[in-house]
Design a protein around this nucleic acid. Structure first.
Lengths: 139, 139
DNA sequence: GTCAGTGCAAACCCTTTGCAGAAAG
DNA sequence: CTTTCTGCAAAGGGTTTGCACTGAC
């Protein structure tokens, strides 16, 4: 997802370009995620979306929408915690710190870490994405 | 966990050396994990342990024991799937393929992949382990 | 005898699903 | 109008917890 702030119309166009019908709920959710690069759990998206709005978006729609966005490639799932899934609005290749104490994700700059030697994939399989996670704790 | 096959006594000694009282249940579980380097979910350990035994070990004990072993450093948790945790009996630094179709984990040889440029940790945090996961799908 | 470990079942949490009503084109 | 989406509530699956019983020293 492009990281610049966008108008509602621009977000709607972006959704259409991904073959997603821009409904009110999806626009709200996309706006939250587009506002700035962010790492959020479904729960965090839920509260953010319903923060200052009278018409609440329900939990099921949040999950369905995040799943849809991830499937279409607008956002990326990040699996670092056994108990919940995170979504990253930055879909370019990059890696993460995961603070196990705070539950916060932080990007690792591309220049800070590089993986060399793409391993030979097992017979009959194709690459579906690589991810480096550096787990950290508070001192 | 050392990967050579061991006698029950050797496994018991190993547990003691990690400050774990070697009960019958813990020995059974440790034997499964020690038999060879493996990646198993709690569910897989449960069925393996109860395969050929009349006295069944219950699910809660499996979870408690795996958690204990991981805490003590005998095995390592591997987080690659949103829906379940895996445990790796090889605790040395290495990385994984995760086949999202089959749910199987495979080691990536140390010589096949190397991460360079240890990133600068955020203020006030300490490293708690790095992990590279290459997600793969069947062709 | 004392204390840790185990088994059982219920509770928990995140996520998914089924279905009726609502909204979009 | 027809089709897709939403909301609600219930179900689902892995994991954790409370508590009485068992077993090891």
């Amino acid at each position: 997802m492009n990281q610049m702030k966008k108008t509602n119309e621009q977000v709607a166009e972006m959704l259409k370009s991904y073959d997603i019908m821009p409904t009110q709920q999806r626009l709200k959710i996309a706006n939250i995620l587009c506002a700035e690069p962010c790492h959020m759990s479904a729960d965090q998206v839920l509260s953010a979306v319903n923060q200052e709005s009278t018409k609440k978006v329900c939990k099921a729609t949040i999950y369905n929408t995040l799943g849809l966005f991830a499937e279409k490639g607008i956002i990326r799932e990040v699996i670092v915690d056994n108990s919940k899934l995170f979504y990253d609005s930055n879909t370019s290749v990059h890696h993460h710190f995961y603070n196990v104490d705070t539950g916060k994700l932080l990007d690792i700059g591309e220049d800070e870490l590089s993986v060399s030697g793409l391993p030979v994939l097992p017979e009959g399989t194709v690459n579906d994405g690589m991810e480096v996670v550096v787990r950290i704790r508070n001192k």
